[in-house]
Simulated scan of single mutants.
Amino acid sequence: MSSLGTSKGILEIAKFAIYVSVPIALMFTFANNTENLKKIMGNRSYVVYPPEGPRPPSPEELREMAREIARKNNIR
């Protein structure tokens, strides 16, 4: 079969089983008990948004401001 000995083959199978089973076990743990996931994610702030700045003027306000500027330019 393989040039690997039986002990090396068993070791490779065991390593593969661990590599596959650990992520599956973690997923199973968090999928069945969402409280654990909430606790872990609640302890860390992953995204910190800056405070909200002033809103830009609405299109109507912009039109009115443009009209006022045009009136001032026409008066001069």
Rank of each mutant, 00 (worst) to 15 (best):
E35A: 11
T29W: 10
I13G: 13
K15L: 13
R71F: 08
E12A: 14
N36V: 06
N73I: 11
E64W: 01
Y49S: 10
A25H: 04
K15T: 11
S2Y: 12
E60T: 10
S2T: 15
V22C: 01
R55Y: 01
I40H: 04
G53V: 03
R55I: 08
R71H: 06
P57Y: 03
N73R: 14
G42H: 02
P54L: 05
N36F: 09
A70Q: 09
L26T: 00
N73V: 08
P50V: 04
E61S: 07
P50S: 01
R76T: 02
N73D: 11
V48C: 00
I13R: 12
I10P: 03
I75E: 15
V47F: 14
S3V: 11
A66C: 06
P23C: 02
A14P: 01
S58E: 06
Y49L: 15
S7Y: 07
R71W: 09
N73L: 13
F28Q: 05
V48D: 09
K15N: 11
E61K: 13
I18R: 02
N73Y: 12
L37E: 06
F30N: 03
Y49H: 10
A14R: 08
S2V: 14
N33P: 05
P23N: 00
R76Q: 07
I24E: 00
L37T: 09
I18E: 03
F16S: 11
E12P: 06
K39V: 08
A25K: 02
G5S: 15
G42W: 05
P57K: 05
L26Q: 01
E61N: 07
P54E: 07
V48T: 10
N43K: 13
E12N: 13
K39T: 10
P54W: 01
T6G: 07
A70Y: 03
A17H: 03
L37M: 12
E61F: 05
K15V: 13
F28R: 05
S58G: 06
E12Y: 13
Y19K: 12
V22G: 00
R44E: 10
R44Y: 14
I10S: 15
V22L: 10
R71E: 12
G42M: 01
V20P: 00
N43H: 13
L4K: 14
L26G: 06
F30S: 00
I18W: 07
I24F: 08
S2D: 15
A14Q: 09
E52N: 04
A31Q: 07
A66G: 04
I69M: 13
I18T: 10
G9C: 14
F30A: 02
N33W: 07
Y49N: 10
K8E: 15
Y46E: 05
V22Y: 04
M1L: 15
E35F: 01
L37D: 04
A70S: 11
E60C: 04
K15I: 14
G5K: 03
I40C: 08
A66P: 00
P23H: 00
S58D: 09
